[in-house]
């Protein structure tokens, strides 16, 4: 591990993404001071964590959820109460807080159930409730959804997202799922071989990867933040920086979304074709950069928003594409993959 510096802004959600063995978990454990770093310091609100006393105090301001729920062999209620008991909270107050957090995570009805008799999703909800019940200022999540099946994961992500926004808890989450990261985070840090290869907003990481590794790991989709302005027959209109993109998807006006467009789905032309084309989205743009990618070229465009297209070598020749040239970029409404961001 070699991370010279990492600033964690208050109230933000940061995702650490990267392949297995990139050091995501190690970084989380080090930040939570559950592992000792061989060098360097953790400064929490201007205070250095060095003595045993400051360490316990620091840990009482944070919470951690692992991939496995790691529940204690007792009831769901007692599990969620554990952190509060450790802090010596009074019993009646504790009962209130536990009930509140059981409700928030939708497991109020399981309070008296043995933690050994929960489904995977219920167990992870209990684990999250146990972490949040201590009202932590920072939450560390180590691939909390990895072992859940897709529908369970989906509903849990939705609830976690809501609770993170409600509580404004600073969060650092390790994941290998980009979609999870895109959905929940304000910032994404891509890790590789114990280093942070790039850190920035989801848009900047996805659209302008710092190096080849980041590009290959995050994939090559164009990521655009937008807001749904209206809905049509089976399609929605999404505003991205004053432009309107038509997409197929299920979202309501006013909702914030992320539009993902794969570069192979974008076609370029030098003239604006009149009608007879099924592509619902056509934008005028300027070529910013042309990069050879082996069998094809990667064309970076500025259409008022950032867009990437793949074209073959003959097309580059036929259309005489070069940097600075004005072109029209088209893609179908079905080529836009929408991710809803519940805020």
């Amino acid at each position: 591990m070699n991370i010279p510096h990492l600033d964690v802004p208050e109230g933000k959600v940061i995702s650490l993404i990267g392949p297995n063995g990139a050091g995501k978990s190690t970084l989380l454990l080090t930040l939570a001071r559950l592992l000792k770093s061989s060098q360097g310091n953790i400064i929490f609100k201007g205070k250095k964590i060095d003595s045993n006393h400051t360490l316990i105090d620091y840990r009482r301001h944070l919470a951690m959820v692992f991939q496995e729920p790691l529940l204690f062999d007792t009831t769901v209620f007692e599990n969620v109460a554990t952190g509060l008991k450790i802090r010596g909270m009074r019993h009646d107050e504790m009962k209130q807080v536990v009930a509140d957090y059981l409700e928030r995570f939708g497991i109020g009805h399981l309070a008296g159930r043995s933690a050994r008799k929960l489904s995977g999703g219920e167990a992870q909800r209990t684990s999250l409730a146990r972490a949040f019940a201590t009202k932590p200022e920072i939450v560390f999540l180590d691939e909390p959804f990895s072992s859940l099946d897709p529908p369970t994961r989906e509903s849990l992500i939705e609830d976690l997202d809501r609770i993170l926004r409600e509580t404004g808890t600073t969060t650092i989450m390790a994941t290998h799922d980009q979609m999870e990261a895109l959905r929940l985070s304000d910032q994404i840090a891509v890790m590789n071989q114990g280093k942070i290869a790039q850190i920035g907003t989801p848009e900047s990481v996805m659209n302008s990867p710092a190096d080849e590794f980041v590009a290959s790991f995050v994939g090559v989709e164009t990521i655009l933040n937008g807001e749904i302005v209206r809905t049509g027959a089976g399609t929605v209109i999404c505003r991205v920086k004053n432009k309107e993109i038509e997409a197929v998807g299920d979202a309501k006006p006013g909702e914030r979304v992320v539009c993902c467009i794969r570069p192979e789905h974008v076609t370029l032309s030098t003239t604006l074709s009149g009608g007879g084309v099924s592509a619902r989205n056509t934008f005028a743009g300027k070529i910013v950069k042309i990069a050879p990618m082996g069998l094809f070229y990667k064309i970076s465009l500025d259409c008022g928003f950032f867009l990437t297209a793949y074209v073959t070598a003959p097309s580059v020749e036929n259309l005489t594409l070069q940097e600075g040239k004005s072109v029209f970029a088209s893609f179908k409404a079905t080529a836009v993959h929408l991710i809803r961001r519940s805020v």
Binding site: L29, L34, R60, T134
Partner: peptide, 10 residues
């Protein structure tokens, strides 16, 4: 990881 989980609970 149970030990780490308990320590992380403060």
């Amino acid at each position: 990881n149970l030990r780490l989980q308990i320590l992380a609970l403060g």
